[in-house]
Design a protein around this nucleic acid. Structure first.
Lengths: 238, 238
DNA sequence: CGATCAAACCTATCATACAGGTTTGCATAT
DNA sequence: ATATGCAAACCTGTATGATAGGTTTGATCG
């Protein structure tokens, strides 16, 4: 029968109401990241519910990364955190609702744009950070784990340099999945020349961004993802 | 001093441990969306913690949309839901960590791609759905609220037609923000010809997708967003 | 064999209690 | 007057037990 869905999920019950009240408090109070929220007891009294209900609401908001909680201290409004969406994507992949290739299609789309924007907007310090990470990759030829971490940091640094906080959010969403699949792609680049070629693309990309060449940066990023997809396909990943 | 961060946030304390245990249960049990989880009491016994802790863990996972809970019934593994990320983006905007223009840059990037993929992969039913929504927009000239809902549905339908579940997730992330800013953009298209032009672009886009013309679909989507950004800028939105 | 209903199970919420971390302000010493 | 240090007040984390009300299941009865 599919009855009406009055207001999206999460608003049902006292906990949902508390969540709405707390988000309204943040919005209407025009609070900024770091600002403190009233204590659980205060909300419980104001909303006339038990502290249990408020606690579950706080936990929910903390899980969504809207607030931060910690022992003894009052909860604070959260700063955007690039790891916020990662659990959702990992869940999608682990339950086979999302394939690895689908992840790479989105990454290619998004990161071609971050490369463009990074070339346009990066600061000097960001150029150096990106170049340093590319170099760390080159120097980690015998330590794939270290190379992977540098690679992840490299892509995230480019997203940050795009000067739009949504991009790190999206790039970060795929971090968990990347940690699980990166070694597969690396191993499937069987010849040393293939492996060096991948490292060189990273270095060239760092240079294009440092040089402020958005077209070249975008093209290199696209090439990088095309090669990655080929490597994953070669490894039998679908 | 910034001590080491062993494993990203959320793993501290008993609740964090419970969350890990539950996600591990889903992953290791290779559960699929809809599958039932053990009850709170069972987890409480198995993990040797109180039901309070397990409940907070369940609530957290429900907030992240990894599971679904409802009264009386046992929790189930969640299907991906396009509204999952919306609260996070709304939070970013309401706390002034994200600007509207930044939202539109991401949307343009993502939706140019969804238009391309939709033109390539859409089914007949999806073509018809998209066309019907474009027509609803045309017919809602005197009812902006209805037009907005059709517009939101239109973009989401295209994302679904792209046959990659991550795209609806991202497009859906901006739904809440769009509801807040859409009227501004509409009103700022002052002349009737401007307004009709926007409606026509939607119809043309629907046709391009139905015709299986990815280049044209992508170009129309890009034009649409360029016009939207101009409208928002004209309205003084930054 | 099918309809009915009660028992068993499950989640939602509440009240209370206590342990341990944090903040604050007062008292004391310099 | 200022700085130091400590204790009280406050806050979160977790546990326990109780009750209300929704859901599932299986035995019973027609």
């Amino acid at each position: 029968m599919q009855a009406e869905v009055p207001q999206a999920k999460g608003n049902t019950g006292l906990v949902g109401g508390a969540i709405s009240a707390i988000t309204a408090h943040i919005r209407d109070g025009e609070l900024s990241p770091g600002d403190k929220l009233p204590s659980e007891s205060v909300f419980a009294r104001d909303l006339a519910v038990s502290r249990t209900v408020v606690r579950e609401a706080f936990r929910s908001l903390a899980a969504m990364r809207l607030i931060e909680v910690s022992t003894g201290k009052r909860a604070t409004v959260a700063k955007l955190d690039h790891t916020a969406i990662s659990p959702l994507i990992e869940h999608g992949v682990s339950t086979e609702q999302i394939s690895i290739l689908q992840v790479y299609d989105v990454r290619r789309t998004i990161e071609t744009r971050t490369a463009t924007l990074a070339a346009l907007h990066r600061t000097g310090a960001q150029s150096r950070e990106i170049a340093a990470l590319a170099e760390t990759m080159q120097n980690s030829f015998l330590d794939p784990a270290a190379m992977m971490e540098a690679d992840i940091g490299f892509h995230l640094a480019i997203a940050r340099a795009a000067k739009n906080p949504i991009y790190p959010l999206i790039v970060g969403a795929f971090e968990g999945v990347t940690r699980q699949t990166w070694p597969v792609g690396w191993k499937s680049r069987s010849s040393e020349s293939e492996q060096h070629h991948m490292l060189d693309i990273h270095s060239d990309l760092a240079s294009a961004i440092a040089a402020g060449n958005p077209e070249q940066a975008a093209e290199l990023m696209a090439l990088h993802f095309d090669a990655s997809v080929r490597a994953l396909l070669a490894a039998g990943i679908s």
